[in-house]
């Protein structure tokens, strides 16, 4: 049983670490603030979720398990809410997503290539 818990902890902690590093790379390499917000949100959702789940399986007693659950819950709620507020502030401030132009251009190109038949 303990071995099984250890194995599951290993797996979830590694998945969480992977997501954290991926999100870090995303924060560095993504082109604009919206896409970076996506990367930042990944730390809160997948990274924190997996790591806290892995820790929860190793919790020695109930108080610690409860604290872990609370920490995860508040982290998830508050951090994602502040990223949401940030993205909305950016939007109101009039910053356009860089990728939106690319999508528009792609659609225009596609329409040029194959005009709708009807």
């Amino acid at each position: 049983m303990a071995l099984l818990l250890d194995i599951v902890s290993w797996i979830t902690l590694m998945i969480g670490s992977f997501f954290c590093i991926t999100a870090g790379v995303g924060l560095l390499r993504m082109p604009d603030v919206y896409t970076r917000a996506h990367a930042g949100g990944m730390i809160d959702s997948m990274g924190a979720g997996m790591i806290f789940f892995g820790l929860l399986l190793q919790a020695p007693d109930y108080l610690i398990a409860i604290k872990l659950v609370f920490t995860f819950f508040f982290l998830l709620v508050t951090s994602l809410a502040s990223i949401h507020a940030l993205a909305q502030t950016v939007n109101v401030a009039g910053v356009n997503p860089k990728l939106a132009n690319i999508v528009n251009r792609l659609e225009k190109n596609r329409q040029k290539e194959s005009p709708p038949s009807n």
Partner: peptide
């Protein structure tokens, strides 16, 4: 955004 994310990481 980066400082928010760094804060989350530090909680972890």
């Amino acid at each position: 955004l980066a400082i928010n994310s760094a804060g989350t990481c530090i909680v972890l």
